[in-house]
Amino acid sequence: MKATKISLSRRAAVLLAACAMATGVSANTYPERAIKLVVPFPAGGAADVAARVFALELGTQLGQSVVIDNRPGATGNIGAEAVARATDGGYTLLFGNDFLATNQAMFKEMRYDTLRDFVPVSKVASTAVILAVHPSVPARDIRELLALSKTKSLNYATPGFGSGPHLFGQTLALDAGIDMKDVPYKGSAPATADAVGGQVDMIVSTMGPMIPYFKSGKLRPLAVASAKRSEQLPEVPTLREAGLNAQPYETWYGVLAPAATPKPVLDRLREASAKVMRNPEVAARLRSAGLEPGLVTPEEFGAEIRTDTARWARVVRDAKINRE
């Protein structure tokens, strides 16, 4: 009987080794070539900045280049779908943010399922979402903005239709009774550019790309959506401090792999990513861009994605937001 157990154990080991050889992957050989990190937004935005900071150090840890591939469009769906369908054993990864949660609620037909088709590798950062106005808008705080909205219709830029900032802006408008029309863009960079140029009255988006314009006076911050004030902008109140009973909201960023990624590869990526996130230089570069390092486990990151997916589904349903 003992001999039979040993034989079965050896057969199982041989079978696992054969499977690894068939896929051409193992913890010892991966990666053998450059890795592609798909960023489903334009260059220059918060997601792109965070991805480049992370990719540079990840490449150092893995001993191979990690190449950024910007694929904007459809509120992140174009890039996400491409990664979900990738079958190259961990050489194509996704740098996502909370669009992965909001899109499940906003689009009637999706060609991928966030919770089924991806596995979390590493949370990289989070950032406060902020409400800001162009200097030509005569409102210096939320109370003045509320008063102004009673006399004229205001519009606000967001990083995209169905994005977290878009949905948050919608719920904010409903809760506060502000007449605000959303103007979606293909990423935070073009949204910020038009807000600075005065093509829109306001912007609800991630804080990082706007900090230089706050300092130069080209945009005026009114409130942050996070639970506490930002260290980068300590003088700007939270929405609750400004008098609005809004549920706190931040945008997160992180790396995900296709669900079919072999476990040895996934383990290798997670191990290397953990070393990246423990690097104080990486943390410093993220903070200089207005981002807070995401120091959580892959399991905790996955739980956050599931929680956000459920949250935005409730928001879309309760606010009766039209789905596409």
Rank of each mutant, 00 (worst) to 15 (best):
A193M: 13
R10T: 15
P135R: 05
A176I: 02
V66N: 04
A274N: 08
D48S: 14
V49W: 10
N245G: 05
Y253P: 05
V315S: 06
V196D: 01
A260W: 08
M207K: 06
D113F: 07
V255D: 01
P280L: 06
L167S: 06
K36W: 02
S126M: 12
K36R: 15
I142A: 05
I142W: 11
T206G: 14
V124A: 03
R240M: 11
S65R: 15
E292L: 11
D318K: 11
E299K: 05
S163H: 12
V133Y: 01
L8Q: 15
A223V: 11
V276P: 00
G90W: 03
R285D: 05
R278Y: 04
T23M: 03
A195N: 05
D141S: 10
I211V: 15
V255A: 03
S65P: 11
K150P: 00
Y249D: 08
V196L: 05
V66I: 08
A257I: 01
K152I: 14
E250I: 04
E231N: 12
I35A: 00
A132V: 09
N28H: 14
A105Q: 05
E144F: 09
A284S: 10
L58R: 02
G294S: 01
D182P: 13
T192C: 06
P72A: 02
N103R: 06
P212S: 09
R323I: 13
V265I: 12
V124K: 02
